[in-house]
Amino acid sequence: MFYHTKKLQYFKPPEKPDPIYAKKIQELIGGTFGEMTVMMQYLFQGWNCRGPAKYRDMLLDIGTEEIGHIEMLATTIAHLLDKAPIKLQEDGAKDPVVGAVMGGSNPRDIITDVMAAAMNPQHAIVSGLGAMPADSVGFPWNGRFIVASGNLMADFRSNLHAESQGRLQAVRLYEMTNDPGVKDTLSFMIARDTMHQNQWLAAIEDLKAEGLEDTPVPSAFPLELEKREFAYQFWNHSEGTESAEGRWAKGPSMDGKGEFEYVKHPQPLGPEPTPPAQPEPRLYGTPQFRQTQDQGQQKASDRKIIG
């Protein structure tokens, strides 16, 4: 059961409308690393969790918190869009395209530059000056963005990645506005992203300490079933050898189960592949060799038999 409290988790209203910035904020709602993604990711990981109860409870805690973050951002967007159409009409002459027409210039020369900064028309046409489950260019949120594998270590690492990307985008948006209210709200969300990154790092350490999972994931797969001679080799697959200077190229492996080895000139270990079988006649693929007329007639006869 979910229970909604009418008060927002945190919120400071924007000081003035800004439909262009409202379009940018959509990325934090419906983008690949937006709040909709982490909300659904954490909830499905929690619902599917078969491990210790503390992990399931923690996942449902944070997943539910992310619902509140979406509500905060949706409310921010609504404020940013308030009276936006009127404002846009009043400032129409200031628009570079309108100004180009009024000044006798060719608007085509600058349309490309201003399209990326224009108000999202769907905010007026589709949502009636409200937020949408979409990113900053109007692409709908997609359930394929989420990761819920059933392996907590794999999932927690994905969660750390999502929170890292999400915080990166939030701080970029923080730098793109001078509105004190928007900055205040984003400042709270950025702080929560800081906690969540630390939370996933702590959860990863917990899994290791309890012996439930380790590196490589899945750690329960028998190591003798993989070709161990290749397990810790770094292959230099591009020009230059600067990659040899990294931690991944020498010394003990991170899982403590091997030694890194730098392979400067990796060689192919398999043979040249043989061509696939000739195409089935009814699929009309291109054969390896040109057919004679007699062969073509034979193929036609074969098709009758097959059909």
Rank of each mutant, 00 (worst) to 15 (best):
R50L: 12
Y284I: 02
F2T: 04
Q199M: 01
G150H: 04
D302N: 06
V217H: 02
L81M: 15
S219H: 06
S187L: 10
A124S: 11
D214P: 02
R157A: 08
L207V: 03
P287H: 12
F260H: 11
E261T: 13
S127V: 14
K264C: 09
P216Y: 06
G99L: 13
A124P: 03
D91Q: 13
A170R: 14
A84H: 00
E242T: 03
N142L: 05
R144N: 07
V147I: 13
N120M: 07
S187E: 05
L212S: 12
M102R: 13
F188I: 04
I86C: 03
P252G: 09
L186E: 10
P276K: 10
N198L: 08
G256Q: 09
K54Y: 09
D193A: 14
A78N: 05
V38P: 08
F260M: 06
D179I: 06
D302E: 14
P14S: 14
L60M: 15
A300R: 01
K7Y: 06
G181R: 03
P271T: 12
F139W: 04
A191G: 14
E27L: 10
G246C: 07
R144E: 10
V114K: 04
K87L: 15
Q297H: 09
P140G: 03
Q197V: 01
L160N: 14
M195G: 02
Q9P: 05
E66A: 01
R157Y: 11
F156I: 02
Q89M: 05
P19Q: 11
Q45K: 11
T177H: 10
T37G: 02
Y42W: 04
I306K: 01
T274S: 12
A300V: 05
K208T: 00
G68H: 03
D184W: 00
I125Y: 15
T112L: 14
S219M: 11
I146G: 07
V97Y: 01
F2R: 05
G181N: 00
E259I: 06
P218E: 09
K6C: 07
I77C: 05
W200Y: 15
A203W: 00
R282G: 03
D57A: 15
V97T: 07
K250Q: 13
W200T: 04
G296W: 00
G99W: 07
K54E: 10
P268F: 00
I111E: 12
V101T: 05
I20H: 12
Y55A: 05
R50P: 04
K304F: 11
V263A: 00
P273E: 12
E90A: 08
D193Y: 07
E213F: 12
H265M: 15
Y174K: 09
D113M: 14
G30W: 07
G68W: 00
D109P: 08
G143M: 13
G256S: 01
